Structure formats: structure tokens, C-alpha cells
Simulated assay, not measured.
Amino acid sequence: MSYKNTFITVSEDSTVTSAIVPVPRNNKPTIASIQYDLIKNNPYKYTQEDVQFKTYLIKEQIESNNLNELREQYFTKPKACFRASPLVKKYGWGIHYDDHGKIALFDVNSETYNQFLNLDNITLLKGMRSKRK
């Protein structure tokens, strides 16, 4: 599933008031740190699927000449959308999808984040909660 002209807000139960940059743990990149680096360093370059697949390749340290085939295999099973990403649940980042489904990150405490909340021509979706009510 890919969104277009959509903004995913930080999860309701997130405790952060300002975005946090996720860092590797035990000298290994985490899913959040990989996603953050890919999106933050390349705003509106990648789709959600691009980031998910690149994250998988980096996390699993996969190098292959058959990336198209590998990508097809990777997406044979459904993947959670970025409403479930640790970036929106735990680290305080909103994710904007442009008209082409390309994504960028915005600090929950930024002016741009707040502007997205007040636009009429955009779909707003809440990040998924970390815990049940």
C-alpha cells in the first residue's frame, strides 16, 4: 500500500515533544536508524516501498545482482505501512507522502509539521499506538 498526498502524524501515545535522531545499537544499525538515514538524507526521493526494501538489504547486509527478483520476493508477504514505523511511534517524526508517493520526515516540533496538520487538501493519518488503550 502506498499513500499519496498524505501526512502520518506522530502516534498519540508517543512521549517525545521533539524529534529524536535514532542511533545504531551495539554498533549495528536499527530499522529506525536506517529508515531515518534513507529518508532524511533523501527527502522525496524514495517511496515507502523503496525505503522498506533498502532497509531490509542494509539490515541483513545483502548484496545481490538480482535486486528486482529479490524485491519481488520481499514483497510477496504484506508489509506494515509507515504508520507502524518506530519513527512515528517512538522518535517524534511525521512522514509526508507527496503526490507521487515519495516521502520526507518532519520533526513533530517543527513549523512545517504543524502546517501539514492544517491543510485541507491532504489526508491525515495517525501513527499507530505503541500500546493498546
Rank of each mutant, 00 (worst) to 15 (best):
K4R: 14
N5C: 06
I8L: 06
T9L: 12
V10D: 03
S14H: 01
V16G: 04
V16T: 13
T17A: 15
S18I: 04
A19F: 02
I20H: 00
I20G: 00
V23W: 11
V23P: 02
V23H: 08
V23F: 13
R25E: 03
N26M: 03
N26K: 03
K28T: 00
K28L: 02
I31E: 06
D37I: 01
L38Q: 06
L38F: 10
L38I: 11
N42F: 04
Y46C: 03
Y46K: 06
Y46R: 06
Y46T: 08
T47S: 01
D50K: 05
Q52Y: 07
K54A: 02
K54G: 03
Y56N: 03
L57K: 00
I58N: 00
K59I: 02
K59M: 06
E60D: 05
Q61V: 06
E63C: 10
S64E: 06
S64Y: 11
S64L: 08
N68Q: 09
E69G: 09
R71S: 07
Y74S: 08
K77Y: 15
K77A: 15
K79E: 13
K79P: 06
A80C: 12
A80L: 14
F82A: 01
R83T: 11
A84V: 05
S85K: 02
S85C: 04
S85M: 08
P86L: 08
P86T: 01
V88K: 01
V88Y: 00
K90C: 08
K90E: 05
G92D: 04
W93Y: 10
W93C: 01
G94A: 05
H96F: 12
Y97H: 14
D98V: 12
H100K: 14
K102E: 15
A104V: 08
L105Q: 03
L105M: 10
Y113F: 15
N114R: 15
F116C: 12
N118I: 11
N118P: 09
L119C: 13
L119W: 15
D120T: 14
N121Q: 10
K126M: 10
G127F: 06
G127N: 07
M128P: 11
R129K: 15
R129G: 07
S130Q: 14
R132P: 05
